[in-house]
Computed example of a mutant assay.
Amino acid sequence: MTTVHIPVQAIKGRGVAHRQPHRFERDQRAAFDDGWGTLAEATAAGEEAAAPATQVTFEDARSAITHNDSPDIGFTLGLNPYRGCEHGCLYCYARPTHSYLNLSPGLDFETKIIAKRNIAAVLRSELLRPAYAPDLLAIGTVTDAYQPVERELRLTRAVLELLHTAHHPLAMVTKGSGVERDIDLLAPMGAQRLAAVYVTITTLDAQLARILEPRAAAPHRRLRTIRTLAEAGVPTGVSVSPQIPFINDDMERVLEAAYEAGARRAFYQVLRLPWELSDMFRLWLEQHYPDRAARVMARIQDMRGGKDYDADFATRMKGQGIWADLLRQRFVKTCDRLGFNRGREPLDASLFRPSALRGQGDLF
């Protein structure tokens, strides 16, 4: 695929350095040197377009709860208040979903955010349906529910208020420290086995995190979030995902730090590179780790049956082969040594009370 490049220095704080054409595009454009040297001169002078600002647009969602029957995912109900994510994590497997919107999974994914402004009202209607069967609702599993725009829009907050009122179980995965704002809702729910929060810490290396996850909270700040949640009584866990060979090799240190901060649950996944993400990750490696790019991709392919990615349900989350097994052993042995995932009780859906929502219309 042809890519339109933007120099790294021109996009400080972004995850990728180009607008990746999506797989449905008919026309692709690239900068062109006409022989006069103007392109090279402009590049040397740093005269390309300034770093793109975040744009937020709104949509009216037709549904709030998504359903999945994937056997390798531990929940059937999900909810995501936003499309796209300003955190700009280079490795995000959700990037290719922007292609369905005729937007780039590269810069557009992290600069063009779509907010589902009516998601709380739609969720309320769905929870009140007579046929609705309560189950664990996973929030922010595609894009982060606590990305920066949430501070002003408070869509996630509105969802939590509904679930709190209805005593509906939920679990969240986030890299955003903004989750601390909602401890007043999460703490009492946690005490009733209605809520759990997982904080993703990919690495403790701040320099690496800055180029992998440029607008997410710093690693030390995420550890503080774990501590704050745990001290408030919220069942708290850590996700050490994704594992990227020869890039973030500090899994054990992350787990130790998270346990010390109060996390008692943990899980991991290996890097996934569906669709356009494969090209984007390869370019990122060439920009930041050219000396080991070939070695990283070789190891990834070792875990994917010789391919950049294999979507098979049996292996897509953890990989296959000797290197995937080595990662599994490291994770299991470290969790056993520290005490993760012991006596873990499931969240309780029996407390669900939809009738409590019938007087909530004034919230919207």
Rank of each mutant, 00 (worst) to 15 (best):
2 T>R: 08
3 T>M: 13
4 V>G: 09
6 I>W: 07
10 A>W: 00
11 I>Y: 01
12 K>E: 14
12 K>Q: 14
12 K>S: 12
36 W>R: 11
39 L>M: 04
40 A>Y: 03
40 A>P: 01
42 A>K: 04
50 A>R: 02
60 D>K: 14
64 A>V: 05
66 T>K: 07
68 N>G: 14
68 N>P: 08
72 D>V: 10
74 G>E: 10
76 T>L: 06
82 Y>E: 11
84 G>H: 11
92 C>Y: 06
94 A>Y: 08
97 T>F: 13
97 T>V: 08
104 S>V: 03
105 P>A: 08
105 P>I: 07
111 T>G: 08
114 I>F: 05
116 K>R: 15
117 R>D: 13
123 L>W: 02
128 L>M: 15
131 A>N: 05
134 P>R: 11
135 D>F: 08
135 D>A: 15
143 T>I: 08
143 T>M: 07
151 R>N: 12
153 L>W: 01
155 L>S: 08
156 T>G: 07
162 L>R: 03
168 H>K: 04
171 A>W: 10
178 G>W: 12
184 D>Y: 09
185 L>A: 01
187 A>M: 08
188 P>K: 04
192 Q>L: 10
198 Y>R: 06
202 T>L: 10
204 L>I: 06
212 L>T: 09
214 P>D: 09
218 A>M: 14
219 P>H: 02
225 T>A: 13
225 T>N: 04
236 T>S: 11
236 T>Y: 09
244 I>L: 01
248 N>G: 06
256 E>H: 14
256 E>F: 10
268 Y>T: 12
268 Y>R: 12
274 P>T: 05
278 S>P: 08
281 F>G: 05
287 Q>T: 12
290 P>Q: 01
295 R>D: 15
295 R>F: 12
297 M>F: 03
298 A>P: 02
302 D>A: 15
306 G>R: 00
307 K>F: 13
309 Y>L: 07
310 D>M: 03
312 D>Y: 06
320 Q>H: 12
322 I>V: 13
327 L>R: 08
330 R>S: 05
333 K>E: 15
334 T>I: 03
341 N>I: 11
342 R>H: 09
343 G>Y: 00
345 E>V: 13
358 R>H: 11
361 G>L: 12
364 F>P: 01
